[in-house]
Amino acid sequence: MKPFEHVRAERTERALAAHARHPRAQYLAGGTNLVDLMKLGVLDPPLLVDIGRLPLDTVAETSDGGLGIGATVRNSDLAAHPLVRSRYPVLSQALLSGASPQLRNVATTGGNLLQRTRCPYFQDVSHPCNKREPGTGCPARDGVHRDLAVLGHSAHCVATHPSDMAVALAALDARVRLLGPDGARELPLTDFHRLPGDRPERDTVLRPGELVTEVVLPPPAGTSAYRKARDRASYAFALASVAAVLAVADGRVRHAALAFGGLAHRPWRARAAEEVLRGAPADEETFARAVDAELAAARPLRDNGFKVPLARGLAVRVLTDLAAAS
């Protein structure tokens, strides 16, 4: 790890000002991924702006019956929050299926969204990597890539986004609030993370110096659930995961939102599947057809084709279970 300066920010505007002192500064919240990457040499910020004390650590109901989640709310606190458990079970479940209790106690909402891929080549600075060093190449594409992307990847990058939480947020139509040198803005979570294209070094649309301040959920649109498949029973990243929100009326789908994790460079909102689902009979046949419509776009690499039937099976099961429960 290279030496760095550490500055503690007590107020949000101060954090932005401090960050502006250096173009490669990083905000430090929980640090569970940032410190990890600094130890690996993947990141070497000369300045850490510590936002651990900013007043962004509350979860509060919004006036329209939704939920505002501060950027520094710890993952464990969010998962245990009564409103999250009762109204947004998909979010609580996704959080609890990620990492470990110790990590969830430290990791924050904003940091979770901004965590980097666990692609082994990205994490090892002795290898080329377009995400780490643009233009150097992608050894994963023809290398060991069982865990990597089947959707939305490019010739330049086949990384997956590792978050479980973000997958749930994608299905919940969450919006992300940002504060930057040019002011505040808000955008749908599904627009926050990028596909790699020819700029894989950019995971998100975050602008220099911008800070995630809050994630806002609309009122729940249906029942919801998260399912994840992994190599061991706990403390492992998703091979594939599914977040689903479903509302059924008179045997037909009134609202459906579906998102996949572990398949792409960002949480993969399954719009094509939702198109098929809307208004259709809430049965297994429809669900299978819908998911197939989405996964038709999958382009598996040499060794990760299993993710397609895996994601399909998970999604059909989650939707079927939700339909049965509603």
């Binding site: 500055v7 503690r8 007590e10 101060r14 000002a17």
Partner: peptide
């Protein structure tokens, strides 16, 4: 502290 946010830590 290493620095406070007045930038003069």
């Amino acid at each position: 502290t290493a620095g406070r946010d007045d930038g003069r830590g």
